[in-house]
Amino acid sequence: MLPNVKEFIRPETVQEAYALLEKNRKATVLLAGGTIVSQMRSSNIETIVDLRKTGLDKIVQKPDEIAAGAMVTAEQFRQDRLIADRYGDFFYDSFGLIGNWQLRNMITLGGSIAPRLGWSDITTCLMTVGASLLVYGQDDYQTLCIGDYFQIPSSERPIITHIILPDEDWRYAFYRFARSAFDIATLNMGIAMKLNDRRIVSSRIVCGSRPMFPARMESVEESLVDLNFDEQTPGIVRSLVYDNFSGGSNMIASSEYRNHLASVLAERAVKKIGEIIL
């Protein structure tokens, strides 16, 4: 509940929205899909800035990338033709595991990343495909990787305007584990692999809901370089992920169980990639 809200403003440009945010960051909240803001409890918030009219709800093909506006909803993204052409069923299947239709029609891409939710399946999936962020702030527009965005102090953090998806020919798989179909993930895991014939050229191993913010497991990625992808690979990845997991306990699960889950989901994700390429 935000009991002290006095203003609800719907700017028509990102610049205008940023200016409103800058006026008093501590007392202002940006509204994207509404699923987070509706659950907020703060007596400090006096202004809600609704980004609905800022034109950030489109997905467009650029020369070497796809740019998805921050206000694109999870369901819109899931059903988009450009996304399907580029990523096959990856996003359709992965985002289909999130909540229900109603929720996916509210959740936005930018609204999922910006609050730095540890359990966001959307963030894990976007990191898996190597997405970066186009942001607008005091330095005008700039492109940042998702991790770097959160290195900026929250008092200066720019507005996410687009999610930039690289034009690359990788293989992707995503798994989540939750206590019920509607629950947030106990742990989620996205894996992407670039292969030359069967040689692993590069990979992204992204683990979310650890319960901390999703993170790439770079030491695992390095160990996989130049490995030949065969029937042994899922087991190898499972062991590597198990040994290199970094996570914690909360009321949903213990650190030990998450460690186990991370290795199991990683193995399953690699197996799924194997089903595509082998």
Binding site: N100, R179, S180, A181, F182, D183, I184, M251, I252
Partner: peptide, 27 residues
């Protein structure tokens, strides 16, 4: 299966349905 009421020092931690998991139609 899922309704796991967690406590810490006598205080219930799972005090709403985002943490106390009841089955939904998908389960």
């Amino acid at each position: 299966l899922s309704e796991d009421l967690k406590m810490l020092n006598g205080r219930i931690l799972t005090d709403n349905f985002n943490t106390y998991i009841i089955p939904t139609i998908r389960d």
